[in-house]
């Protein structure tokens, strides 16, 4: 007997709700981890730019370690490691919350922040030195020069790569299904196990990922068109 497509199965009722719940959780974990990764990544980048040797080394070690080990291994590391590494009270608190979500968010945050730190650092470095010199020569102070001349340029340059890092994070978030976070990929798997209609459920999941990614990519393209074309030196 051939495979019978049944789209209504995954587009209505309970299974549709599972997928929507998963989609919501994917957006949530991506947003939370994305926000935290931005903050942590900025901190790591600032440490690296600080010119204080021990801080630079710390930042360098952090970035190289987390960029160069597989994300899946890191997810398991935080998931199983927290029990061993963290004090009992913290663990109990975490279990009372949503432990899988917390471990998954932590893993995604740390991993993504290493990449974000590199993007930020290269953004500031990409501004030619003569921009600082030209602004200082008109009498602007160091801070004024950074505020009005250097950072606005670095920010414009760095936004598109930062957003693509956030898109990577969205896609990488599918890996946290391995520790039981019921996000979109997890739910698509669930629908498959219950219905044996894996093709339909994963098609819907794929389209959901694609829709968000394309929407954001489109936004970046528009951004580039409007703000980046002036930045030629």
């Amino acid at each position: 007997m051939g495979y019978q497509f049944d789209w209504s199965l995954v587009l209505t009722g309970e299974y549709r709700d599972w997928l929507l719940d998963g989609f919501y959780l994917t957006l949530k974990i991506s947003a939370v981890a994305g926000g935290c990764a931005m903050a942590l990544g900025t901190l790591v980048a600032v440490l690296r730019l600080s010119r204080v040797k021990p801080l630079m080394w710390l930042s360098l070690a952090f970035t190289e370690f987390f960029r160069n080990t597989p994300l899946l291994v890191q997810i398991f590391f935080w998931y199983f490691g927290s029990e061993v590494l963290l004090p009992k009270s913290v663990n109990e608190w975490l279990y009372s919350m949503d432990f899988e979500f917390a471990a998954g968010t932590l893993a995604l945050t740390v991993y993504s922040s290493a990449f974000i730190a590199e993007e930020l650092r290269s953004g500031v470095f990409s501004i030619p030195k003569n921009q600082l010199e030209a602004s200082r020569a008109t009498g602007l102070s160091f801070l004024q020069a950074y505020r009005f001349v250097i950072l606005p340029q670095a920010f414009r340059i760095v936004i598109p790569p930062l957003i693509s890092q956030l898109l990577n994070l969205l896609k990488n978030s599918s890996l946290v299904m391995t520790i039981g976070v019921m996000e979109l990929t997890y739910q698509a798997r669930q629908v498959e196990s219950f219905t044996f209609h894996g093709f339909e459920s994963f098609t819907v999941a794929t389209l959901m990922y694609l829709a968000v990614s394309l929407l954001v990519s489109f936004a970046i393209t528009m951004y580039n068109k409007h703000f980046l074309h002036h930045l030629r030196y």
Partner: peptide
């Protein structure tokens, strides 16, 4: 004291 550079060094943004 104003200065004018070889490479102009205008602020592109």
């Amino acid at each position: 004291i104003g200065i004018v550079f070889q490479q102009f060094n205008l602020y592109p943004h």
